[in-house]
Design a protein around this nucleic acid. Structure first.
Length: 1078
RNA sequence: GCCGCUGUAGCUCAGUGGUAGAGCGCAUCCUUGGUAAGGCUGAGGUCAUGGGUUCAAAUCCCAUCAGCGGCUCCA
């Protein structure tokens, strides 16, 4: 390492780095360097602004860290160190998300109890993180599995359980309120009981209870879940593969209704959406959350059917005149009531699905077909439902009435309508919805245009109202193309479409102008302009594309409202309503947006529906049939009623179980038993929860592993508090700040760094809990995470052998027998062949990971180079947010930079400091101050790669100085050490000590720059003639445009380029460049 | 299919209308004596492609191509 026996004794080698790093890590621990006091505690400085810096909660993997994991941790550490050096109180801690499936699976596979596995893995991970020199506050570390932690997770669950969502609060924005307030309102008659005519007091207890439970933000409901009988548990959607099998074990997964705890996150949909505007997050993540919440404006409309009404949801009420049939989901509860006795004669297909034809031939009834179709549809998993887009379905032998025109339309069931979205029923508008179009085509149902974009509307107008001279045998296609060009011409859109059509048409009326457009018309619509020829040929091409050749056929399309049927695809964009009039409502000619409003108004008036807002977001399924999770603080009495346990009984501790594995079965209908059901002594208990001592059964489901990560950041603030989950004063300081600042700076965590894979679920769930706590007055900010930053992944190559199994990527050889990993650059685009133990392997590229057998442990790099080198390398790989390939060959570059810097300050032979008190030469000093300015900016913006590049450049400048035999000026040495300290803290601590400072460098102020020293007094400016750079001139910084112009024109090379031609124009941008136009 | 991001030196990336840049790698030479060492100097670019706007485009606009990510019968 670092040379042979000749290596100078005090060179910065791996061995020296290790020695320095160990010494400083010990000293940081000993002195509690990174312990951060809370308000009111000794050492707390209230005058400093706060920074709460947070990493996404890691799961303590048994596999240990690889070099990809700490990328974000190193970044937040650098940022935290920089903030400490710029006068902030910094809170930066690290805890462990140790409940959940991965921990349980690890325990099963390694045959240890999860508790033991977690303890072991946490301590390994703490060691690894410590080795990276991360300056976390060790006193604030928490684990979700600590009783002292999950006691408060249960407490928050109770807060949610004891709350309801008052949609009227805050002028309609809504807020969570204690459920006791709801009961008071009912009692005082201030609020009517939904679905009840009787006053609250006269209601039976059971009804009261049902009403209250239906309002709770945490509630029990029977919902379809992903049930995997072989694993004996429900699975989250992301744990189910595309083929409807479990990710682990590849077992079949079924949809099965189960009674589960739910969280009413849908109540918060609007606020979760709107408050995204308050936070400084990557736009990408905001978009993902918006899509997930999936707000859509539309209308509910009731289609009368027999004596009942089918309620549909649509985002396009303006197309209601084009609704030619109705589709409801196969599981829709109304199907049984609506299904007809027998089929009459119809002009469309009655049923399409495997076996349907035979059934129809045998004269099966609608009911029988419905049953058969339901069986067919339920066999498909969600994923399979989406696979083939071929439409299937069954006409149920009933008709409904279209509320806008009274038209009788057939009712179908089809699995392309999902029961969980909207009302589970749609009006089908085949001309303006792709799915409906496909279905209508398959079932031979009518497809009727009701919206045309402007050009098509113009075509329709032309087709239906053409003058004699515009139809065959005249050259009508030319006329039409010309006319379309005019209609679609620039500046025409301000006019109403109808107005414009009228104007243009009347001008072309042969009765008026003789069919000749005169030159007098050239400035008004319909005129002859310069570009008419080009525009006309464009429209002729369009007519060709639309296969418009025969006038009568063309006209027929519009007479039958069958333009899109003929086109073969739906038009789902906005345009103008057509063919949309009845005796009660007429929207022809209205723009889509206006038409939507008009139809919604009509529906409301006619009591047939109303405008409404729908969300894709569903309530959050909060139960897991697992052992390794937080128990619910809930018990059931003998009749099965649920009761919350009082706060005083928390925590409800998880019983120790030797066998904690879930029960598996091959029968998808086998009764669901959770592991905790088997803990008989625990599952049944005698308690006094306010009704005297009674026997109760405990809730034996556990919480999902999202629960702990929903609020862990709040516990970092006050980790040892045994009275509250967090004291309000402490919460207020770290989340809202001490001063009266702008709203933006009061929004919680100042920087939250983590992978984009948590863009939706974790961040949405955590925001939801935080908002509930905010509404109930437990936290001071409406949002938990003000600034979010997604670090990229470290990627690497992976190799699979013939069996498709990953092989150790570090043993893969190139064709010439070298290790692939040592020469990635050369073989980046090569196809190999690559071999592992002589056998051919296939290369892949992706995220680094243990399972891909391409992971490199940070410990190895620390051993070979020191962790300062590793930190520096990881940060200089590229922008933090970018994913980038790990390339071991680039690490020595970072290592050598540290060596060069060290050598600039330290005599490698004696180990003595080698700096001089002489002032730095002006050039060096200027370079220093420019660097300080740049590094400060880069640090704030988390652009550590560029701040490192700037420091390398400065070090190169310094090397030129010291290379001449001079010692580094102390002002440069000090400033550079301080600037490098957040990035390579151990080396800089050491140098800082040698520079005569007893205090840890982490407490020292970051260098300031002198504004005067970052500007040059002379700048070089390029002079270009006709846009080409011909020369460069030096001008003083303050020089005005005239002076610069004179200097430029005086330049010889410039004069040569001008060649005496007359000068038309001289453009001078002071400080930037001169351009001479001749 | 839809949405988003990216495309600049061999590699990883800076560069928000005004001079094409950094680090690493590579090459020459010097020091060092055999190396993942130090220093000097240097080569290396159709800024993905094609149009447009402008005195001036890597940068702004439009289209296309390639790569990556997310969502996907969401009415």
């Amino acid at each position: 390492m670092g040379g042979g026996s000749d290596t100078p004794p005090f060179r910065y080698t791996a061995a020296l780095a290790q020695q320095i790093e160990n010494a400083w890590q010990d000293r940081w621990d000993r002195e509690g360097t990174f312990v951060t006091p809370n308000p009111g505690q000794a050492g707390f400085d209230a005058s400093r602004p706060k920074k709460f810096i947070l990493d996404m909660f890691p799961y303590p993997s048994g596999a240990g860290l690889h070099v990809g994991h700490p990328l974000g941790y190193i970044a937040t550490d650098i940022y935290a160190r920089y903030m400490r050096m710029t006068g902030h109180n910094v809170l930066h801690a690290m805890g462990f998300d140790a409940f959940g499936l991965p921990a349980e699976q690890y325990a099963v596979q390694n045959n240890v109890h999860p508790r033991e596995a977690v303890n072991r893995n946490v301590s390994t991970m703490r060691q690894q993180l410590r080795r990276l020199g991360l300056g976390h506050d060790p006193t604030r570390s928490v684990s979700t599995t600590d009783e002292d932690f999950y006691r408060w997770t249960q407490w928050i669950f109770l807060q949610i359980y004891h709350s309801w969502y008052d949609a009227d609060a805050h002028g309609g924005a809504g807020a969570a309120r204690p459920i006791a307030q709801l009961v008071e309102q009912f009692e005082r008659g201030e609020r009517t009981v939904p679905g009840e005519n009787r006053p609250w007091k006269s209601l039976p207890e059971a009804v009261k209870r049902r009403v209250i439970d239906e309002h709770r933000l945490a509630y029990l409901a029977e919902v379809p879940v992903n049930w995997c009988p072989m694993l004996g548990t429900v699975l989250a959607n992301e744990e189910v593969t595309a083929d409807g099998r479990s990710e682990r074990g590849n077992y079949p997964v079924y949809k099965r209704p189960l009674k589960q705890w739910m969280m009413r996150i849908t109540s918060y949909a609007e606020r979760l959406l709107n408050d995204l505007e308050l936070v400084d997050w990557p736009e990408k993540v905001k978009i993902m959350q918006r899509n997930w919440i999936g707000r859509s404006e539309g209308a509910m409309a009731d289609f009368a059917c027999n004596t009942r009404r089918i309620r549909v949801f649509t985002t396009r009420p303006d197309t209601m005149f084009g609704a030619t049939y109705i589709v409801i989901s196969p599981e829709h509860e109304m199907v049984d009531h609506l299904v007809g006795e027998k089929y009459g004669n119809v002009a469309f297909e009655k049923a399409i699905f495997p076996g349907a034809a035979e059934m129809l031939a045998n004269g099966c009834s609608p009911r029988e077909l419905v049953m058969a179709y339901r069986a067919f549809a339920s066999k498909k998993t969600d994923a399979q439902r989406g696979e083939g887009k071929d439409k299937t379905g069954v006409f149920i032998g009933a008709y409904a009435l279209n509320p806008v025109n009274g038209q009788r339309v057939p009712v179908f069931i089809a699995d392309y309508v999902l029961s969980g979205y909207g009302t589970g029923a749609i009006m089908a508008v085949p001309a303006h919805d792709e799915r409906d179009f496909e279905f209508a085509k398959a079932f031979k149902l009518p497809i009727r245009d009701v919206v045309y974009p402007r050009p098509v509307a113009a075509m329709a107008h032309y087709a239906l109202h053409a003058f004699e001279n515009e139809v065959p045998p005249s050259d009508w296609r030319d006329e039409l193309a010309d006319y379309l060009g005019v209609v679609s011409g620039e500046g025409q859109h301000q006019r109403s479409h109808a107005e414009m059509l009228h104007m243009i048409r009347s001008r072309r009326d042969p009765a008026r102008s003789g069919g000749v457009v005169t030159a007098a018309d050239t400035s008004s619509p319909g005129s002859i302009g310069e570009r008419r020829g080009v525009v006309r040929s464009f429209w002729l091409e369009t007519l060709d594309d639309l296969e418009i050749h025969d006038f009568n056929e063309f006209r027929e399309r519009f007479v039958n409202a069958g333009f899109y049927a003929r086109q073969g695809e739906a038009f789902s964009g906005a345009g103008l309503a057509v063919n949309s009039a009845s005796t009660s409502l007429k929207i022809d000619g209205l723009e889509t947006a206006t038409a939507k409003v008009r139809v919604a108004e009509y529906l409301e008036q006619a009591k047939l529906g109303k405008g409404t807002i729908n969300y894709k977001l569903r309530d959050w399924l909060f139960s897991r049939q697992r052992y390794w999770g937080e128990p619910f603080p809930i018990v059931f009495d003998e009749s099965g009623e649920a009761y919350a346990m009082p706060e005083s009984m928390l925590p409800v501790t998880l019983p120790h179980m030797g066998n904690f594995q879930p029960e598996s079965s091959e029968d998808p209908q086998a009764p669901v038993k959770t592991p905790l059901d088997r803990a008989k002594d625990w599952a049944t208990t005698t308690l006094d929860i306010g009704f005297g001592a009674q026997r109760y059964k405990r809730e034996t489901n556990t919480m999902p592993n999202w629960a702990g990560s929903c609020w862990y950041y709040l516990r970092y603030l006050d980790p040892k508090n045994s009275e509250q989950f967090c004291s309000p004063q402490v919460e207020k300081y770290w989340m809202s700040g001490n001063a009266e600042k702008s709203a933006a700076s009061r929004l919680g965590v100042d920087l939250y760094v983590g992978g984009v894979e948590h863009a939706v679920l974790h961040l949405l769930y955590a925001r939801f809990w935080h908002k509930v706590l905010f509404d109930l007055g437990h936290v001071s900010t409406p949002e938990p995470f003000r600034r979010l930053f997604n670090q990229g992944y470290i990627q690497s190559y992976a190799f699979k052998d013939e069996r498709g199994i990953y092989v150790d990527a570090f043993s893969v050889k190139t064709p010439d027998g070298r290790n692939f990993m040592d020469c990635i650059d050369e073989f980046k685009d090569s196809q190999g062949p690559f071999t592992f133990e002589g056998k051919p392997v296939v290369r892949e590229y992706g995220k680094m990971g243990k399972s891909l057998k391409n992971a490199m442990a940070p410990d190895d790099i620390c051993r070979d180079y020191g962790c300062d080198t590793l930190r520096l390398y990881e940060m200089s790989m590229g922008p933090l947010e970018a994913s980038k390939p790990w390339n071991i060959r680039d690490i020595p570059g970072s290592y050598r930079f540290l060596q060069r810097f060290w050598r600039n300050l330290i005599d490698e032979q004696t180990g003595a400091l080698r700096v001089s008190d002489q002032p730095a030469p002006m050039e060096l000093r200027k370079a220093l101050h420019k660097t300080i300015k740049g590094v400060r900016q880069d640090m704030e913006a988390l652009q550590f790669n560029t701040s490192i590049a700037k420091l390398i450049e400065l070090n190169n400048t310094l090397t030129k100085h010291t290379g001449g035999g001079s010692a580094a000026p102390v002002e440069v040495a000090r400033a550079m050490t301080l600037m490098l300290a957040p990035l390579a803290p151990h080396m800089c601590e050491e140098l800082w000590g040698k520079l005569g400072n007893p205090k840890s460098i982490s407490q020292e102020p970051f260098p300031q720059f002198d504004e005067k020293l970052v500007v040059d007094d002379e700048v070089e400016m390029p002079v270009s003639v006709q846009g080409k750079v011909r020369s460069r001139i030096m001008v003083p910084v303050g020089c005005d445009a005239k002076g610069i112009e004179a200097a430029a024109l005086a330049d010889e090379k410039v004069r040569a380029s001008i060649e005496g031609k007359p000068i038309k124009k001289v453009i001078v941008v002071p400080g930037k460049m001169v351009n001479i136009v001749v």
